[in-house]
């Protein structure tokens, strides 16, 4: 579907290009993302850490989720053509950290009456 028109003439059609993926990679990715989510939930619900380190740990776990998504589901390493995705990833990285870290920074004022 992705490439009808002229782009499709370069390879043997969109279906053929993706046939070599087995289910294994997807299952590993699925389990990995489940495990990461479970750890995050366990840490947040069980009050196992202090606020600051907890936030940092959750950020790292969130970052790992992105990595799992990119490598196991989106196959970032297997593109043809110009490496647009590396620019996209860099931009995504900047935005993600800007949004996550700056939100913490903005919201760290004492909003609740103590």
């Amino acid at each position: 579907m992705a490439a009808h028109g002229h782009a499709e003439q370069h390879h043997g059609g969109p279906v053929a290009a993706h046939e070599h993926h087995g289910a294994g990679k997807y299952i590993v990715g699925y389990i990995a993302s489940l495990v990461l989510t479970a750890i995050a939930f366990w840490l947040a619900l069980g009050h196992h850490m202090a606020g600051g380190p907890l936030a940092l740990t959750l950020l790292i776990l969130g970052g790992l989720q992105i990595v799992v998504q990119l490598f196991f589901f989106m196959h970032v390493t297997e593109g043809d053509g110009p490496p647009f995705h590396s620019v996209g990833l860099l931009l995504g990285l900047i935005f993600t950290f800007a949004i996550a870290l700056m939100s913490i920074w903005i919201m760290s004022f004492h909003y609740q009456v103590q």
């Binding site: 800007a98 903005i106 919201m107 004022f109």
Partner: peptide, 21 residues
């Protein structure tokens, strides 16, 4: 398109986040 991600808090300057923010 890049800078537009770094301006959002101007919609709630009066929230009280402080001078540095």
């Amino acid at each position: 398109s890049v800078i537009s991600y770094f301006v959002w808090a101007h919609h709630f300057f009066t929230m009280g986040a402080g001078a540095d923010v």
